[in-house]
Simulated scan of single mutants.
Amino acid sequence: MNDGDGKVSEHKNKGLVTALEMGPIVLFFVAYLLLRDRVFVIGGTEYSGFILITAGFIPVLALSMLAIWRITGTLSRMQVATLVLVVVFGGLTVWFNDERFFKMKPTLIYLLFGGILLVGLLRGQSYLRMVMGELIPLDQAGWMILTRRFCAFFFGLALLNEVVWRTMSTDAWVNFKTFGLTAAIFVFFIAQGKLFREHGNEKE
């Protein structure tokens, strides 16, 4: 295979991985729109559409992560942590028939990521660089700045998720989780443009 074919294949793989990462979220949102007002009786117990969608989301995400692992040969620590928390809190949601467990999941994910980055910062290290070092070429000072910003960003998202799910409707929370969080991450990266220009290390 020549270099051109290799680049095309790599590009296709990246596109497929992105689709696999976003697919479960999109399916969750579409299923919620279709089933949010329905109630299902299973084994004499009533379950809302949200609970059943959560039950289906767990295996869909697990299969997505399995496919990513088969394609890339690895999973990031963030992907593994996310999968574990989805299984645990999604399972609790279904077991106790209580949607609050699943709504708390993003809070715990962001607290976990923010906490890990904070531990690294206290040790004078950028754990973010270990995860994203191949994607973003920055010098050491740039990585430390970006890590501090990501740490604050994750804690901010955790607080925001708590406010949304505790004070707003389930519809509002699903829209926030599907679109609000994605938009927040996009805006956050756009806002780092000056940092990337000032601390970019093209040699890396």
Rank of each mutant, 00 (worst) to 15 (best):
F113N: 00
L117T: 08
P137M: 09
V174C: 09
L108K: 06
V174N: 00
M168T: 15
M168I: 06
L157W: 06
T167S: 15
Q140M: 04
G124M: 00
F176M: 10
I136A: 02
G133K: 08
F113Y: 13
R166Q: 15
F153S: 12
M168Q: 15
G156P: 07
N175L: 13
T170F: 05
F155A: 12
G156D: 10
V164H: 10
F102M: 14
N161H: 14
Y110K: 00
R166W: 14
K103P: 10
I136K: 12
M104S: 12
M104Y: 14
L146E: 03
K105R: 15
M130E: 07
S169W: 11
G156K: 11
I109K: 05
E134S: 13
G115R: 01
T170W: 01
A152P: 04
L122H: 09
E134D: 14
R148A: 09
K105M: 15
I116W: 12
L108G: 04
M168G: 03
I145Q: 07
R129D: 06
A172Y: 11
N175S: 03
I145S: 11
L111E: 06
I116A: 12
L146A: 02
L108C: 08
F176P: 08
G156C: 08
I145A: 04
M168D: 12
F153R: 06
R149N: 03
D171T: 09
S126Q: 02
D139I: 06
L112R: 04
M104K: 11
W143T: 02
G120W: 00
D139Q: 00
K105H: 12
R129E: 14
W143N: 01
V131H: 07
Q140V: 08
G133D: 04
Q140S: 06
L159F: 15
V174M: 11
F153C: 05
W165T: 00
T147S: 14
L121E: 06
R129W: 06
Q140F: 06
L160P: 11
G142Q: 00
L111Y: 09
F155I: 03
T147F: 07
L159K: 08
I136V: 15
V119E: 00
W173A: 02
I109Y: 10
F153V: 10
M104A: 14
I145Y: 05
T147H: 12
K177T: 06
P106V: 09
E162L: 14
S169L: 08
N175Y: 13
G142E: 04
L157C: 13
P106L: 10
R129M: 09
W173N: 12
K177N: 09
R148C: 05
R148W: 04
F154S: 11
R129S: 07
P137L: 01
K105C: 13
L159A: 15
F155S: 03
R148E: 07
N161R: 12
I109T: 14
V163C: 05
T147V: 07
A141E: 14
P106M: 10
F154R: 04
A172S: 14
P137Q: 06
L118A: 13
F102G: 12
L111S: 09
S169K: 07
L138I: 07
L157R: 10
M130C: 01
D139W: 02
